[in-house]
């Protein structure tokens, strides 16, 4: 499909073969690891490791490029925001008053620049594993494996339906906005007045909501006709098993995570901008 479409990219890599719930656990460990450090060594290490893993996932570059651009621009804006509002935050963290430059009464501290670098690297290192998780996980297999590790099947089915229907809804959004644009109610840049653009964008939501209500009826009827929810358990067409390689990956991830905890408790527990 087009820009987003259904996200799963078929492939034969390490990550495609991995059990989806194991992948979810790895993803969660990764997020915790990234979120709980403000340390340049950890940030650089995780970012490097992330891109190595991304190389193994063999996802075409054209697909991940949009996400890469979006996250980089988010990072730049965030960095600018931090810099404009709190130019001395790095100094309060480190106590290092080294001045790099001074532009018209506006001091630029070494510590603040390093702080912004660290926090941008930290956010950037979320990207590789997000790309891997999003593009190599088959939605139905993911739901099935969630059910297997103990999530109630009704909850797992919610995930399955979300991933099944969001490309359709995205398509519908495009159809409605194109139809409105054809009538002269565009929300794009071709409309000059900002107020009218806002109005046009917000008016798209009403037909979308009404369509969604009808879709809820249709899907509910189809599922009830097939007897969904009558039994306590259900079997899955796309059921998966946990293989030996999955266990090995899990153990490796847990060892890595334990090493990070060791690093945090013994070597450095707070903010750190200098390399080891």
């Amino acid at each position: 499909m087009n820009k987003f479409g259904s996200l799963y990219v078929d492939g034969d890599s390490l990550f495609h073969k991995m059990n989806p719930s194991i992948k979810l656990i790895l993803f969660a460990l990764w997020l915790i690891a990234v979120f709980s450090y403000l340390d340049i060594n950890i940030s650089c290490g995780l970012l490097g490791l992330g891109f190595i893993l991304l190389y193994f996932a063999k996802i075409p570059y054209q697909i991940s490029r949009n996400l890469f651009m979006a996250v980089t621009s988010f990072n730049l804006i965030n960095a600018l925001f931090i810099f404009l509002i709190t130019p001395d935050y790095g100094v309060t963290l480190t106590g290092n008053h080294t001045l790099v430059a001074q532009i018209a009464n506006y001091p630029i501290y070494y510590a603040t620049i390093m702080y912004i670098l660290v926090i941008s690297l930290k956010y950037l290192s979320l990207l590789p594993l997000t790309i891997i998780f999003v593009f190599t996980t088959h939605p139905s297999r993911f739901a099935a494996s969630l059910n297997r590790i103990g999530v109630p099947y009704k909850l797992a089915y919610i995930i399955s339906i979300i991933f099944r229907y969001f490309p359709d809804i995205h398509h519908e959004f495009k159809i409605i906005s194109n139809a409105q644009a054809a009538r002269g109610f565009s929300y794009g840049k071709d409309e000059k007045s900002l107020k009218r653009r806002i109005n046009n964008l917000f008016n798209i939501t009403i037909p979308l909501i009404i369509q969604a209500m009808q879709r809820i009826d249709k899907v509910t009827n189809a599922m009830e006709l097939r007897g969904f929810g009558t039994s306590k358990k259900r079997t899955w067409y796309n059921s998966t098993t946990i293989k030996v390689t999955d266990i090995i990956f899990l153990i490796m991830a847990i060892i890595g995570f334990a090493a990070l905890i060791y690093y945090k408790t013994v070597i450095n527990s707070g903010f750190r901008i200098d390399f080891i």
Binding site: I162, Y165, I169, I216, T220, M223
Partner: peptide
């Protein structure tokens, strides 16, 4: 079933 579908479609939208 209706609640489950509602949650999913609303979340997707």
């Amino acid at each position: 079933t209706r609640t489950i579908v509602t949650i999913s479609i609303a979340a997707a939208l």
